[in-house]
Write a protein that binds this DNA or RNA. Structure first.
Lengths: 101, 101
DNA sequence: ATTTCTTATCGCAAATATGCGATTGGTTTT
DNA sequence: AAAACCAATCGCATATTTGCGATAAGAAAT
């Protein structure tokens, strides 16, 4: 139950870092991102072959990653090509670096 | 519902990174850690004054951070002094660095 | 011994997250 | 136009997270 936390004004960076961390807080999503780092890009279908998870589940995780901006989908009919969003990736990278100083 | 995910054997580093990320995935916990970085150490009571959250809630968050090893509690009767666990902190730092290469 | 102080834990309620099958929506091919 | 393909979304079940007040547990001070 989020009562008080919602009203707290954390520093902007704190919120942003937590948001990225939350998105990274699941092994499947880490694995997906690692896969994207190697392949530079890939399609949802590829991932369904790599992980023993339902297509809808993979799609869910991709949605989470897209929500925080770590990846982006490019329409490449009839497929969708997912890539790392370098700009936000670098923002996340910097936030983590600063955090661990 | 975790059905298949539990059976997947991700690489060890993937699991570890996700575990740390999950623990960092809440602004209050980020803020607590930032506080510990500045103070080097502090007591639960101090945090209750810093954040407008119930004592039990702070204690919960500290428990999470302790669970993944990012902090440790030292009995300093009648208080408990919390510090960053440098060893695990460095492990986490390295994992994130490698991840973002 | 009793009171006080500090922190952890319990029990509850509500919100989120996770996973799946089934369905839908949009293309492309036939 | 119909069939096939790909990916997102819906609806559901279950698990986990978040937060609080109340209580318990431990030590210190009176």
């Amino acid at each position: 139950m989020k009562r008080n936390t919602e009203q707290i004004n954390y520093r902007e960076n704190t919120e942003a870092l937590a948001k990225f961390a939350k998105a990274l807080g699941h092994p499947t999503r880490i694995a997906i991102l690692k896969h994207l780092e190697n392949q530079s890009c890939c399609f949802t279908g590829d991932l369904v072959d790599v992980f023993p998870l339902a297509q809808s589940t993979i799609s869910q995780h991709l949605k989470e990653l897209k929500k925080v901006g770590l990846i982006q989908g490019e329409l490449k009919p009839p497929k969708i090509k997912y890539c790392i969003n370098q700009q936000n990736w670098n923002i996340a990278k910097t936030l983590f670096q600063q955090f661990f100083d």
